[in-house]
């Protein structure tokens, strides 16, 4: 039932778009690194591999070692995995919650909308970071997954608002009325009539949530509220600052994670802008 012609056309423009190309190449590079990286190194992230302590990159330790002699490359590639998991899961939960709440509010309108909208606004004005700090500080053992859930639970309001607005405009279209005249149930109308029309939009929302979740996680990690039982790019930066990587000039410790976070988030936004051009023919360059 899929509209092959339209999909092909979008794929054609997407792959021709410079911004999408650049963004995808960067993201693909890091994904491959996260997937293959850990198999290329024989050290565990927290293993004291180098008895000499901190050392600049060499043929043995590709990215050097930390203050304690841990292999930076191993930490980096494992941290990348954590970063992608946070993006996928945290961003995913945020998107999903936002979509469900947005659809419900937008489709039913009236009192349902008023209540959900009030909830959205409340969560929106709560200083997210402060709440995250408090919750994170109360948890003794923190895993990457708890972090994902925390981020997801606080990042949905913008998505909900946007999806609600879009649903509002779609539900007044005649084909929704026609579906009602066919006796279709509301739930079915939302997911089989309205949602497919917003696929491109939802994809863009997810990409933004993905990038947002990575940034939030990095911030949490950096101020010491990251996972206690794993490594992440944010944690690497925190440790490096904690153990004086800056004054001692151990650049190989903090530059890779900082650069990777910047590059991944930047690439995501770049892809997003590019895809926006692809989906919106008015922004397309012929």
């Amino acid at each position: 039932m899929k509209n092959l012609r339209i999909h092909n056309e979008i794929l054609y423009f997407a792959l021709r778009n410079k911004k999408v190309q650049i963004g995808l190449i960067i993201i693909l590079f890091f994904v491959l690194l996260a997937l293959i990286g850990p198999t290329l190194t024989m050290y565990q992230p927290f293993e004291y591999a180098n008895p000499l302590g901190p050392q600049a990159p060499s043929s043995k330790f590709w990215m050097g070692t930390t203050f304690f002699g841990q292999d930076v490359f191993s930490q980096f590639v494992n941290g990348l995995r954590a970063t992608f998991i946070v993006g996928l899961l945290g961003g995913g939960i945020g998107t999903l919650l936002g979509i469900v709440i947005g659809f419900t509010a937008g489709y039913y309108g009236g009192i349902v909308d008023e209540i959900l909208n009030a909830l959205t606004n409340i969560v929106l004005v709560i200083p997210t970071m402060a709440v995250l700090l408090i919750i994170a500080a109360y948890l003794d053992v923190r895993s990457v997954f708890t972090e994902c859930i925390l981020i997801g639970l606080t990042s949905w309001p913008w998505t909900a608002r946007a999806v609600r607005a879009q649903t509002f405009s779609l539900r007044t279209r005649d084909f929704v009325d026609l579906a009602k005249l066919s006796g279709m149930k509301s739930f079915k109308i939302i997911f089989s009539e309205i949602a497919p029309n917003m696929m491109s939009y939802l994809l863009l929302v997810f990409i933004l949530q993905f990038g947002g979740a990575i940034l939030t996680a990095a911030t949490l990690d950096f101020i010491g509220l990251g996972p206690t039982n794993a490594i992440s790019l944010g944690l690497m930066m925190q440790y490096s600052v904690l153990w004086g990587a800056l004054p001692f000039g151990m650049w190989w410790w903090f530059v890779p994670p900082g650069l990777a976070i910047t590059a991944i988030v930047g690439a995501l936004y770049c892809t997003n802008v590019g895809l926006d051009e692809v989906f919106n023919p008015k922004l397309r360059e012929m």
Partner: peptide
């Protein structure tokens, strides 16, 4: 009881046949 509306293009979900 059934209805037909004004805008033929808006009566169809554009992404389906």
């Amino acid at each position: 009881v059934q209805g037909v509306f004004q805008d033929p293009y808006s009566s169809y979900n554009p992404i389906f046949k």
